[in-house]
Nucleic acid binder design. Structure first.
Length: 474
RNA sequence: CGAGAAGUGGCUCAAUUUGGUAGAGCACCUGGUUUGGGACCAGGGGGUUGCAGGUUCAAAUCCUGUCUUCUCGACCA
């Protein structure tokens, strides 16, 4: 009995436990001896590598350059921008000793790198000719979280952070929205995750930002996962750090700034958006292997065909794994499902006698027999179908879990009986946000830009200023 | 950080109540037979029981501390 694969808790019985089971059984991570610092195993890391490859290409296309900044920040540097340090101080890790000697000034492990970039920018930006300055770095950061969960909330986080400087406010705002759009397209088209994109309220925005934008995804259980953010900083940081340059009129002026980032949390989002009781389900566009080929019976003809199909797929640029282990077919089928390969190709004599092979799609587990000579073509089409179906399915589910509340009683009724987001009107007062958080544990997700405000604030009854989503979050 | 639960070969657990030679199934290795949904036969390797103290003739078992994991909450991305 291969019990290790059979022990996935049903996601409708205990979603949190199901998530933990999938993460482990699909060989994505292992725990380390440091709380909240996970080992990302090859199969999990391959997903991250694909994310990096695709996003990095988008960053380069839009003229960003990669750099690598230090991992340590001296306390005095972190303290330069007040709102920023207030936001991050409670969760930074401090280094106080070097070897046996106590440090003169303690240094923290970067929780994010704004201040490091600012210090550097001050040195290298002299002229309007130096702008825009478009930097990005792939690195890890540390935030000392109290509760940790693989991918969703860890202490050591793999991410990408873009930091840019611009000559005008308008240009910096454009950059903020440009990167937001890149994230949105990536999540929709590659990860097949529908996201609600919008502006954060003042209460929820990044420490030190003028405006923060977010990509909010809804997980299978109706809980929100913030899947990426972009920030417009105005020139607050630049002023605090004294970054100035000479413009065309030979005047000393302050530039405008942005930052933006996504993390391996997106892997958690894939799991909780597409996964099912059999395990992981990977969208073809991000899967390390788009197909897994499983031979049935070890005779020469089967082995020859399996090799042939594998070669053909690779030639057509379709990553494919060939499972030649000596497990039984049933075991391999089950394992292929746990690991979420988009398509499984079963090759056995029964089909080969009629020049057929069997394709099994992971999203629906539906089987179909196809002509051997058409395998590549069929796989290409099926991958597209799966990619589309996963997005449509997730979108439909999400939309079915968004509710409109017109008054507080209705809000309470929804918040206490249903899982999902609540769409409503809000007066703009942080007191109402706080009350909703205290009463129901729901925070504002983001403001809705394109809808007219139709009623009064759901909480206080005063005139509504914004359309807004509320929801519980990871 | 608060409440609860748990840490025994890679995994799931037994032995803990009542201190007395650490055990099973699966996984792993070798050989063979198998192969269309989680195979079978034979043989074999692997654990000083999370870690550190303490009590005792004797500790997986009792006591103290600590670390890690899980669930629920608070907080934060």
């Amino acid at each position: 009995m291969a019990n290790e694969v059979k022990e996935i808790t049903s996601r409708d019985v205990n979603f949190a436990q199901w998530y933990t089971d999938v993460v482990k059984k699909a060989d994505l991570v292992d725990y380390s001896s440091i709380k909240g610092s996970m080992i990302i195993r090859p199969y999990g890391y391959a997903i991250w590598e694909n994310m990096q490859k695709i996003l990095d290409a988008e960053f380069k296309k839009t003229n960003h350059e990669n750099v690598q900044m230090p991992m340590f920040i001296p306390e005095s540097l972190l303290n330069v921008e007040k709102e920023h340090v207030a936001g991050f101080a409670p969760e930074v890790a401090w280094v106080t000793y070097g070897g046996n000697e106590k440090l003169e000034e303690r240094v923290c492990v970067r929780p994010t790198s704004e201040v490091l970039f600012c210090e550097h920018f001050k040195k290298i930006i002299k002229s309007y000719r130096d702008l825009p300055l478009l930097y990005n770095q792939w690195c890890t950061i540390v935030r000392w979280e109290k509760t940790t969960r693989p991918f969703l909330r860890s202490r050591e986080i793999l991410w990408q952070e873009g930091h840019t400087m611009h000559a005008s406010e308008e240009e910096a705002r454009e950059e903020t929205l440009r990167m937001l759009k890149i994230y949105e397209n990536f999540q929709r088209n590659v990860l097949a995750i529908p996201v609600i994109v919008g502006k954060k309220t003042d209460k929820e925005k990044f420490a030190g930002a003028v405006e923060s934008y977010t990509l909010e995804a809804m997980m299978y259980d109706g809980v929100a996962l913030q899947n990426g953010t972009t920030h417009y900083f105005g020139n607050g940081f630049a002023k605090a750090f004294g970054i100035e340059y000479l413009n065309r009129e030979n005047k000393l002026v302050t530039p405008y700034q942005t930052s933006w980032g996504v993390t391996t949390r997106m892997i958690g989002a894939i799991i909780m958006t597409h996964g099912d009781d059999n395990g992981l389900v990977l969208p073809p566009n991000i899967a390390p292997y788009k197909t897994i080929i499983i031979p049935i019976g070890q005779n020469d003809e089967v082995m020859a065909k399996v090799d042939e199909i594998h070669e053909k797929l690779l030639k057509a640029d379709i990553t494919s794994k060939l499972d030649l282990s000596d497990k039984t077919p049933g075991f391999k089928f089950a394992e292929a499902e746990v690991k979420g390969y988009p398509i499984r190709i079963e090759v056995g004599m029964r089909d080969l006698a009629n020049d057929l092979v069997t394709l099994v799609r992971r999203d629906t587990l539906e089987k179909r027999q196809v002509k051997l000579e058409n395998v590549v073509e069929e796989v290409v089409n099926l991958l597209q179908e799966i990619q589309t179906n996963l997005y449509d399915r997730a979108l439909k589910r999400r939309d079915s879990m968004i509710y409109e509340a017109h008054d507080y009683d209705e809000f309470r009724e929804i918040a206490t009986t249903k899982n999902g987001f609540i769409k409503t009107n809000w007066c703009g007062d942080v007191a109402c946000e706080n009350k909703i958080k205290d009463d129901f544990g729901m925070k504002s997700r983001c403001l809705i830009e394109n809808e007219e405000v139709t009623g009064n604030c759901v909480c206080c009854g005063r005139k509504g200023k914004h359309r807004i989503y509320f929801g519980r979050q990871y």
